[in-house]
């Protein structure tokens, strides 16, 4: 790890402590937007709005990848997360008949315990991370590290076997999702009955 240590000391000499560059300011602003969108995603009472704020959070993360010069991953993030995962989540909300408007029971009763756990974990993690990487700078100058050419060459030189295994896993997940969501006669029966009770319960609520 001597090159790391040498680079760290060199970085401390060339960078002043906490002297923000333009990239850092942009990263900070986009990071604030991303974090705010994530907070709204986990706290909003409207289920569809949660999915839409998730788009903002994931899009902000794509911009962060671009700022970290990982362009291929940024576009993969936009394509897969913003393009398909959020659409899948919206379809899931629609198919489970999630209420469109304000739903006051979106949070369960243990939200204060959850808040305690999350704040404690955040404090511990931020403290450890800041303390560990106080004198570490990422060198973003020079040739970008995450161009599509670099990613393609490493993916098909060093990571071919995991890549192929991953395609088999995706196929298995596809087949599994189809098998899980296929309707048999019994589940269809239970389904109509569940819908009946659901509409009954909704009418009872009114």
């Amino acid at each position: 790890m001597t090159p790391v240590a040498a680079a760290a000391t060199a970085a401390t000499q060339t960078h002043g402590f906490l002297s923000p560059t333009g990239v850092e300011i942009a990263f900070l602003l986009v990071g604030l937007v991303t974090f705010g969108a994530a907070i709204v995603t986990v706290t909003t009472k409207q289920l569809v709005h949660a999915a839409l704020w998730l788009v903002a959070a994931l899009g902000g993360l794509a911009v962060e990848y671009l700022l970290l010069t990982a362009e291929f991953i940024a576009w993969v993030q936009v394509l897969i997360y913003v393009g398909s995962v959020v659409v899948l989540l919206l379809f899931g909300l629609m198919l489970t008949r999630a209420p469109i408007g304000h739903s006051p029971d979106a949070d369960s009763g243990n939200r204060w315990a959850a808040l305690t756990v999350a704040v404690a974990a955040a404090a511990a993690l931020v403290w450890v991370v800041v303390d560990a990487f106080r004198t570490t700078w990422v060198d973003l100058d020079g040739a970008p590290q995450g161009t599509t050419a670099v990613t393609g060459s490493i993916l098909f030189q060093h990571w071919v076997l995991p890549f192929e295994a991953l395609s088999v896993l995706l196929l298995a997940a596809l087949v599994g999702a189809i098998v899980l969501s296929r309707r048999t006669a019994r589940t269809r029966d239970a389904n109509t009955r569940a819908q009946d009770t659901n509409t009954k319960a909704r009418e009872g609520n009114r």
């Binding site: 962060e64 756990v117 955040a122 993690l125 800041v130």
Partner: peptide, 21 residues
């Protein structure tokens, strides 16, 4: 860029997700 920026943002996002879960 200071490495602490992405690391802190990632830990904050992780804890937000933890709260949501």
């Amino acid at each position: 860029m200071h490495l602490a920026y992405p690391a802190v943002l990632s830990s904050l996002l992780f804890c937000t997700g933890l709260y949501g879960v």
